[in-house]
Design a protein around this nucleic acid. Structure first.
Length: 109
DNA sequence: GCTTTGACTCTCG
DNA sequence: TCGAGAGCCAAAG
């Protein structure tokens, strides 16, 4: 794995349940502008997309959406992702975050 | 070491 | 408002 991925995952893990973040914010927080690389890291995440939110080194990739709060591609489908988010208290409407601005988690400082 | 690809984002039509 | 194209960075081949 790479340093970038480690950063991304580390930041991802900081996102509390019921909150979501964007690839862009993640990249920025990681100190890079490689938005694509962020998603790429998630896609290749060694923890497995299905295991998102489970386990110690969990990487809640399902809490990561695009810059518009819209659920972009996902390994098992956006439906499962949306369902997980709803389960955590995030309102998902038509494969996109309903209260995006309200549940959006930003890495301040 | 160069080329290809990608869970992205922005801009233009 | 939706769709297509270009730009971008990093990892893999």
């Amino acid at each position: 794995m790479t340093q970038l991925q480690e950063k991304i995952w580390n930041l991802c893990k900081k996102v509390p349940a019921g909150k979501v973040t964007t690839y862009k914010l993640l990249a920025e927080a990681a100190g890079t502008k490689a938005y694509r690389a962020v998603g790429n890291a998630m896609n290749k995440n060694p923890y497995g997309a299905l295991k998102c939110g489970y386990g110690k080194n969990m990487v809640p990739c399902h809490r990561v959406v695009d810059s518009s709060g819209h659920l972009h591609g996902f390994a098992h489908g956006l439906k499962a992702k949306a369902r997980l988010l709803r389960k955590e208290g995030v309102k998902v409407k038509n494969d996109k975050i309903a209260d995006f601005e309200k549940v959006l988690y930003t890495f301040k400082k």
